[in-house]
Design a protein around this nucleic acid. Structure first.
Lengths: 328, 328
DNA sequence: CCAGTGGATGTTTACGTAAACATTGCCCAG
DNA sequence: CTGGGCAATGTTTACGTAAACATCCACTGG
């Protein structure tokens, strides 16, 4: 910076003003400074900048292995939205979802150049990690339900699940089976709860819950069991991947979809339109979730805390060919 | 830091030594300092640290929208591997793959707290962006082929494609059709080149190339055309998503897989084992690619440049049920 | 008993920037 | 023509850390 100042024949402070786009600099001077910058290949040192300003203009994102489509899409939206607000995004991967790993991520966080944090993860493991959160670092949690202790942004899991079940009931099915996500997942839990609540509210029998782990493979295994249930005419899978495996199992067992069994998924991943048959599913607006996370955390930084709350992003039923009226 | 020093009754330099794990501090002193740190909730200011040390311990990753599985998995591996080396990862999303956007990302890069950069993208757009690369910032490119100008780490696209084609030829098919990725993609291009090279080397006819855009939807559209080709008994799809769409189209048109037509994919996404039928495909080791990117870029930082080169990560054929011997 | 040695700790300084305050010089109202 | 005011620019300083150098002290060997 001093070199630039010298070459441009001004003081370093003027260079600073130019590089920050501050007013009070003649057009002539500005041009000279910019020329000098270009000539010397000057680029501001962000460490010094951060040190001086007391902020990094960077958001940290803690997330589990980017194996689920939802997390990825959310992350992408966060990165894009953050960039629009002039913030960079630093990734804090947590390889294994154990309490130790999470605590580790949070403590690394303490040494990280980050102004605020967005957490994309199940809240279970977040509980004990609370303590190690550096003071003054704001947090927003996505895909969780700790609205009382954190600010949360999430898809309206319950609403989506309710829509899925109702869709199938409306088609004339007596009841709806549920292929749930793993026990540890709050998203899975809420979808499952909404499923049974909706059935109960409609006065229907609640079939035993079948559990998978989000993977297509687990959906396949579950599907082999469901194919043998004579009463089963409609299944709500907690995500599209499991629905894919389910479709495969049903096909192998000669159960036609939707003629014998209707299947509905959750997420609306791009591929689901190309399943056999194309999957009816609940569309999640991940981009919106990511955007709200960023805006939420920036808001909190400005207001220094504020109260917690939960923002729900609505879902949308996408009707394709895997669901149809009950035939007996 | 001064506060900690005062509370512990030592100098700030001793605190620094403790916080960096340097030797030459009595166990007693160390404990006192650590206690003081805990009591005051001290966490080192990474901006000051970076300023003083002249490095950020952060890698920048430039990538297009995280829509393809490969990019995501690579990114994940990069983040994990970087963490193991004590580096954080900052994401630089490029929303739209236009030259302007790429240049923009590179210029933002100049202001970013980053020691080196890993680029996951097609090289086309990288060309003109070269100029704006800040001097002294090392670059490694994944998923590309500019080995002469950049250090490149990539899956052995050609080898994988060759294996795919040979697998089908070995099964007795006269020739193999190819459902290629988008024109702009170098990965797609190399897979397509290897496909035609392999056919030519085997003295087979080269059917007209069918082009998709990586999406399942485009695979479906291409599949509708291929289903009407009476000579087509084997298709090599440039990725698994397109293979999925292809399978759907073939199914709709009543062409059985693999009895009438064999299909092989590329990538081995987790879902492909649950396609109908489970997809034979070429497995890519994205984790390895990511790891090598990180190690490569760290190496370059140490050696300050070194020469460019290309590292290829081998693929593996995963045989499932979508390919079978030709039947006439 | 003393010089020498080496480990433990303290002091000074610079990293690059931007806020706060200081200075310059010009314009215009009185 | 003169002083007040304001825009443009310069000077000083502090941000938190760690390298380089300085100091202190206990112990060893002659």
């Amino acid at each position: 910076m001093a070199d630039v100042a010298q070459l441009a024949g001004v003081s370093s402070q003027t260079v600073s003003r130019v590089s920050n786009g501050f007013p009070g600099v003649t057009e002539d001077t500005r041009r000279q400074v910019l020329d000098a910058m270009r000539e010397l290949g000057y680029r501001p040192n962000s460490a010094a900048r951060a040190l001086r300003r007391g902020e990094f203009r960077t958001l940290g994102v803690i997330t589990f292995s980017l194996s689920t489509m939802g997390n990825i899409r959310t992350l992408e939206a966060i990165a894009t939205s953050a960039a629009q607000h002039g913030y960079a995004v630093t990734l804090l991967p947590v390889a294994v979802p154990t309490q130790d790993e999470v605590n580790g991520a949070f403590s690394r966080l303490g040494e990280l150049a980050v102004d605020a944090v967005i957490v994309i993860m199940e809240i279970h493991l977040l509980d004990a990690a609370t303590v190690s959160l550096p003071p003054g670092v704001q947090v927003v949690v996505a895909d969780s339900d700790a609205g009382d202790r954190y600010t949360v942004v999430d898809t309206d899991q319950a609403g989506g699940a309710r829509d899925a079940v109702r869709h199938l009931l409306d088609l004339g099915h007596d009841t709806v089976w549920h292929l749930a996500g793993p026990e540890g997942s709050f998203a899975a839990q809420r979808r499952a709860n909404a499923w049974s609540d909706t059935l109960r509210a409609a006065g229907r029998m609640t079939p035993p819950l079948v559990r998978g782990d989000w993977s297509a493979e687990s959906g396949y295994r579950a599907g082999l069991r469901l194919a043998d249930e004579p009463d089963c005419t409609a299944v709500f899978a907690a995500n599209d991947q499991m629905a894919l495996g389910l479709l495969r199992a049903l096909h192998e067992r000669g159960r036609r979809v939707p003629d014998d069994i209707s299947v509905i998924g959750f997420d609306d991943i791009p591929e689901s339109a190309s399943f056999l048959p194309p999957l009816t599913t609940i569309h999640q607006d991940f981009a919106q979730v990511g955007r709200l996370c960023v805006e939420g955390v920036l808001d909190k930084m400005r207001q220094d805390g504020a109260e917690h709350g939960t923002t729900l992003v609505p879902t949308r039923l996408v009707r394709r060919e895997s669901t149809g009226p009950r035939r007996r």
